[in-house]
Design a protein around this nucleic acid. Sequence first.
DNA 1: TTGTATGCAAACATTTTGCAGCGTG
DNA 2: CACGCTGCAAAATGTTTGCATACAA
Lengths: 146, 146
Amino acid sequence: MNDQTDLRLTPQRMAVLAVLAAARDHPTAAEVHERVRTVSPGIGSATVYRTLALLVSAGRALELNLGDGTAARYDANTSRHDHVVCDGCRRAVDIDHPVLDGMMAQIACRSGFAITGYDLRFRGLCPDCQANGSGPARGAAGTGQQ
Amino acid sequence: MNDQTDLRLTPQRMAVLAVLAAARDHPTAAEVHERVRTVSPGIGSATVYRTLALLVSAGRALELNLGDGTAARYDANTSRHDHVVCDGCRRAVDIDHPVLDGMMAQIACRSGFAITGYDLRFRGLCPDCQANGSGPARGAAGTGQQ
DNA sequence: TTGTATGCAAACATTTTGCAGCGTG
DNA sequence: CACGCTGCAAAATGTTTGCATACAA
């Protein structure tokens, strides 16, 4: 719950942070674990989960759900941005943000909520999957609203 | 995978659909099960899950993830709309949609994706939680991006 | 030494699957 | 009779927790 607080950087935590910073995809906790293991072979999954939660609450990482009900993913890009998720290969690409701030005020006014932020995710087919003509993989149809 | 197809309406399925239609909140599968049980006492959770998946793929319900990594929620309002989620009580309120369609074209152009849709979720505090001064409950801080 | 971090394994929660039985066309 | 739907229980996932040990200040 501390924010931007300095946290103790143990070897394991540094390794997790490094993996996250080096990743240009959006790895799940299990993938982070797998990658960290190559550097810090003995690390346990609980440590990875604990560390990821720590990084998230320290504002050093973002946790994302890609819409399918599967594992949470992590993103070292902590600046405000949104994602496009491919229905074919489940790949997520960062997009630099469109301006919804005016809309936030509008929604706040109409709903009575004090709006603090929003999460926006686009769905579609990436260029590769368009080329391969691969339809949505797995039970992706109809699923995935928010 | 069938869309808008007529599906066989067994008593259990009707019960699930009725519960969903009557709910003005966004119940989890477990909550749906609980409510359906009052009408159809012997129903098993597997049937509820199977039925919900069926309704979703038939376009008669929407599956939503509220951003916390917890259970999926279901919404009988199948028209395009978005949500505001309260960081305090986790309640989700429907909002009739803002127009992002122009933005979809823009994103499609810049990303190369064939955009088919988007999910938008606002975060904030509902009027009740603002009044109660209740801060975000549970580990909601920092979590919840998409 | 005192507190925190780690690793392991077990616990948990949610969802899916296997399978036998039932009901209906 | 054939087939799909149901209920139960077990499996599969993804994540968290308890606890003893290992570190570090």
